[in-house]
Amino acid sequence: MTLDTKKPPHCAGCGIALQSEEQEKPGYVPASSLNKEEAVCRRCFRIKNYNETSNVAVDQDEFLKLLGGISSTDSLVVHIVDLFDFQGSLISGLQRFVGQNPVLLVVNKIDLFPPVTNWNRLRNWVQKQAREEGLKVADVVLCSARRNIGFDRVVEAVNAYRQGRDVYVVGATNVGKSTLINRLISDYSDLERELTVSRYPGTTLDAVHIPLDDGKSIIDTPGIVYAWRMSEIVPRKDLASLLPDKPLKPMTYQLNAQQTLFIGALARFDFIEGERQSFTVNVSSGLTIHRTKLERADDLYAQHRGEMLSPPAKEDLDEFPAWTRHRLRIAPNTKQEVFISGLGWIQASGKTGAVVDVHAPKGIKVMLRESIHS
């Protein structure tokens, strides 16, 4: 491979421009490896081989500038979202960036839902939620990149809508973009190339162009970092507890008014008013839920935060954003749930209605939505 001396080589894993001068900056690679074909930066090497990472930030304006260029192209836009964190990972403003290009919405991580799930009903739910967020989609495909479930349908949809064009892949951090692209590469290209895949947000740092056999490209864009997602603010050592990697096991609690549920030290759910009813909590099995009376909740948190109530651990809570209270009114005879971005959701029984307070770190998206199981 002949390198263009006017343009620095780029990491084959994350796409960042390579440099050998400053070890603490993005794209560092030893000088001896700088001009190697398919070279990877030190950060990608450590993520892939040792599951390590480093605190590297890329300017958010650069992300938006990159997305803004899509409208001037003739491309298929594949938007990957995380079904577990749908409202947290959907790029609601994507429509203004893509222009007239079709958008294929790929909904990843369906392996977290039970096999008996009504997938047609779930697909309809996704379409309705996307429409309410202002996103027009040509089609919706459900899949699990990790488990290779439904991937044949993703390839069929890409074939149907690509029509010989480039493919831009966009999404928030940690929704499974790189895992999915690696599968697309194996189907569309003979390249022996693999993008860096990690549980850590922001693994891809710049646009990565992967040439296809027909002369077009798959363009993997950097993940948009949304600070309203719990996964963006927890200590990295707690991500394994926060992000489920096996089917959810909903926990149902029969609560009277004036009772509280703590989800570790990440959030608190207060049932303020309403008849005795059930609330079903859908979060990672790596998190522990504690129930108490509302009158004891403040004292319980003060005494056990970071220990019995964890994660985060006590030494990390001083750096954690203070909680903000959100009051939500669940209407009677509706199927609604409380959604906490990056953490999960709590489904109300839906018969008599309820008033609830949700305490979550400041800035985290908390909202009422139509039940995903409705």
Rank of each mutant, 00 (worst) to 15 (best):
E38Y: 07
T117E: 06
R42N: 06
G69E: 03
V106F: 10
S285C: 08
P102E: 04
G150R: 02
A265P: 01
S89C: 00
L294E: 14
V107N: 10
G363N: 05
Q336W: 08
P235K: 09
A31Y: 07
D238I: 08
A302Q: 15
N118L: 05
E21R: 14
L104D: 02
L34T: 03
D214C: 07
F320Y: 14
L142I: 02
R131A: 15
A297K: 14
A31I: 10
S371V: 12
V56Q: 08
S349C: 03
I263L: 13
E319T: 09
D316W: 09
I372H: 08
T288F: 12
M230T: 02
R147D: 10
R147T: 08
E275W: 02
S231E: 15
P9Y: 04
I372F: 11
Q347T: 15
I70E: 00
Y188A: 08
H373C: 11
L368S: 03
V155I: 15
A172S: 15
A265T: 03
R305N: 10
N182A: 12
G353H: 11
I233M: 04
V170F: 06
K351T: 14
A57G: 10
C14M: 09
V29K: 09
E307G: 10
E295I: 15
P244H: 11
R162Q: 05
G264Y: 08
G202A: 01
D4K: 14
E295V: 15
D139Y: 00
T73Q: 10
E295P: 07
R327W: 05
K136S: 14
F86Q: 02
A31M: 09
E62K: 14
G93I: 09
A240C: 11
V169T: 10
K249E: 12
V116P: 01
